[in-house]
């Protein structure tokens, strides 16, 4: 089973500029599988990704929408992109500022489909 997760994470990291890619347990906010550059700790990434997804899910639900499909947080020094696979699982990537966001979105969508 872990090989499947590892393969998914490896595919995401092939997108240029990805610093860290994870499969995350969305309920507990813990890492299921990850591949990160040296110096990047995936544990806080997993916890924060799960927490942010819950917040946004709450916001959408009060407006009558379903849970978020893709989330993209843009910051001064990089990007965080999340793709919920199910209520229990997320795929997550952190990138630098130069990454191709369209390719990253496709990679996360493909990863989610492989894990469904």
């Amino acid at each position: 089973m872990s090989n499947r997760y590892d393969a998914v994470v490896a595919a995401i990291t092939r997108v240029g500029g990805v610093r860290s890619a994870c499969v995350v347990d969305a309920i507990d906010g813990i890492v299921v599988a990850e591949s990160s550059m040296v110096g990047t700790d995936p544990a806080p990434l997993a916890a924060l990704a799960a927490s942010l997804t819950r917040k946004l899910d709450g916001l959408l639900s009060v407006a009558g929408h379903g849970p978020p499909r893709v989330i993209h947080l843009e910051a001064e020094l990089g990007h965080l992109m999340l793709k919920p696979v199910s209520p229990e699982l997320l795929v997550v990537a952190v990138t630098d500022t130069e990454t191709n966001l369209g390719l990253l979105r496709l990679a996360l969508t493909d990863a989610a489909e492989r894990l469904e």
Binding site: P44, L45, L48, A49, S51, L52, K55, L56, G58, L59, L60, H65, G66, P67, P68, R69, V70, I71, H72, L73, E74, A75, E76, L77, G78, H79, L80, V94
Partner: peptide
């Protein structure tokens, strides 16, 4: 709450200030 969370995420992940957040809504 989302605003605070976005700030917390970018601070802890050392991404600098957040500039935008987009999402596609389910359903």
């Amino acid at each position: 709450g989302v605003m605070r969370e976005a700030g917390r995420v970018t601070r802890i992940l050392a991404l600098g200030a957040w500039r935008g957040l987009s999402m596609e809504c389910g359903g």
